[in-house]
Design a protein around this nucleic acid. Structure first.
Length: 423
RNA sequence: GGUGAGGUGCCUGAGAGGCCGAAAGGAUCAGUUUGCUAAACUGACGUACGGGCAACUGUACCGAGGGUUCGAAUCCCUCCCUCACCGCCA
């Protein structure tokens, strides 16, 4: 959520930045500004009346103590009148504030100046491409067939237990999952991240804090009876650790990581592009999250991007980095890099990570601030990235590394899997 | 699930209709003292939204929302949460 004061003072800039996103309702900005004006003037009036009412109440107390009952009674009626006025004004004020809030949450984050203008994924810029795409034999198989061939992932069984998009990993398939999780966590720790194990359900406040609510309500599984949401990413609980927190400036940057399962309803996505592991309702992911000083957040974004790339390099997967255009960026992000790995048999790039700087957008909702020795609390910047999401990594490992002898496990993973081939 | 206790500032904790944005202690920060450390002393020390160049100032906030009252941290109602014990259970 953007800060009203910022919008008020930088109207033209806000409009200009929103245009980079191809934002469809720029009129919201003016509506917000005029609601804010109304809010401020109402509050001024209310404050003045409340001040008067407080003064009268004090006076009454004073008079009562002195036993001047009659005079007290006189002021009482005045005070009652003032209270009534202030009551109706504060009702008006809360209506205005509610409307303001409703509109405010409809505004997405402002893209950073380095973000390319554009409307869709076609306008994303390829920032870099790394590694060589393997050339496969003519009889190469897509990962879902390899999964069946080696009996390591069972989609049918998952259908029976839960439904499409909930695969069962078996034998070496399950071990590969565990190996990847540990590999990612160990590396994150080496890079300075502190491992956390958060709840995988969150309450409404948390969903709101990171921006999933109200925007992506339908994308989350909701446990109605307890009003809890299954997390779509560890970003939600790990970032919300700092909701309503004022941290000390010298504690920045705060670096946390977490492995969690992630749950996404993915309503509306069906068809060939979502076959096999390409898109699941439940998947595993290690997430890295930072709380940063505003002066440092873009430097940190680059570091996080490099870190994610280092994982892909270690796994010997060809990848590319996209700098997302305004139109393709998430609602809450100011700048996002997507990392995509090459899946040789499908001959497609698949997104395995998304690294974003949210600047103060989440922090404003979370009321996540930092404070130096001097001065007022200031909103921090939040960043996060997948490091990494498993299914598509597995898909590309299977497809790219298929050999006569079986699926070759990358050298860095062998100490974790304790086998060199899936065969 | 049952019963009981309770939610006050960074923490502990007092306050039980007006003198309370809130005692006291601790923590933290600044200063004095000090060979260093420690201690002692002095002072500062919540957040948000307004107004003001600023000093400063108004309002709101004692879990949340309502109510009573001229006036509520304090009384009443509803909800949420936490803790303890019992039951059930990994």
């Amino acid at each position: 959520m953007l800060q009203v004061s910022y919008i008020r003072e930088n109207r033209d800039k806000v409009l200009e930045r929103l245009a980079v996103r191809n934002f469809k309702q720029p009129e919201l900005v003016n509506e917000i500004i005029s609601l804010d004006e109304e809010r401020r003037s109402t509050q001024s009036t209310l404050d003045a009346i409340a001040a008067q009412a407080n003064a009268s109440a004090k006076q009454i107390g004073e008079l009562m103590r002195q036993g001047q009952k009659e005079q007290a009674e006189q002021i009482k009626s005045e005070a009652t009148n003032l209270r009534e006025q202030s009551k109706s004004l504060s009702e008006k004020l809360s209506v205005i504030e509610e409307q303001l809030q409703l509109k405010l949450v409809l505004l997405p984050n402002l893209p950073h100046t380095s973000v390319p203008k554009g409307v869709s994924a076609d306008d994303n810029q390829v920032a870099l491409e790394y590694g060589e795409k393997p050339s496969l034999q003519a009889n190469a198989l897509p990962h879902w067939e390899l999964a069946t061939k080696y009996d390591i992932i069972d989609f049918e069984l998952g259908n029976k237990i839960a439904g499409a998009g909930f695969p069962v990993y078996k034998g070496k398939g399950a071990k590969l999952q565990r190996a990847l999780i540990n590999f990612f966590l160990d590396n994150a720790e080496k890079a300075g991240y502190r491992e956390m194990q958060p709840p995988i359900v969150v309450n409404e406040d948390s969903g709101f804090g990171t921006g999933q609510l109200p925007d992506k309500e339908g994308q989350m599984y909701h446990v109605g009876i307890d009003n809890l949401y299954l997390i779509p990413t560890a970003e939600v609980p790990v970032t919300n650790l700092y909701r309503d927190v004022i941290v000390k400036e010298e504690e920045l940057p705060i670096m946390n990581c977490a492995y969690t399962p992630c749950f996404r309803r993915e309503a509306g996505s069906y068809g060939a592009h979502v076959r096999g592991l390409n898109r699941l309702h439940q998947f595993d992911k290690v997430e890295i999250v930072q709380v940063a000083h505003p002066d440092k957040s873009y430097e940190i974004l680059e570091q996080m991007s490099s870190y994610v790339q280092s994982l892909l390099q270690a796994l010997e997967l060809p990848y590319r980095v996209l700098s997302l255009c305004g139109g393709d960026m998430g609602f809450t992000s100011a700048k996002t890099y997507d990392m995509e790995v090459w899946c040789a048999a499908q001959a497609r790039w698949l997104e395995v990570s998304s690294v974003s700087n949210f600047e103060t957008y989440q922090a404003n909702r979370l009321k996540l601030r930092f404070k130096g020795k001097e001065g007022k609390p200031q909103l921090a910047h939040t960043l996060n990235g997948s490091a990494l999401a498993l299914p598509r990594i597995v898909a590309s490992l299977l497809e790219n590394n298929q050999t006569e002898k079986g699926i070759k496990i990358p050298a860095v993973l062998v100490p974790y899997t304790r086998f060199e081939y899936i065969d």
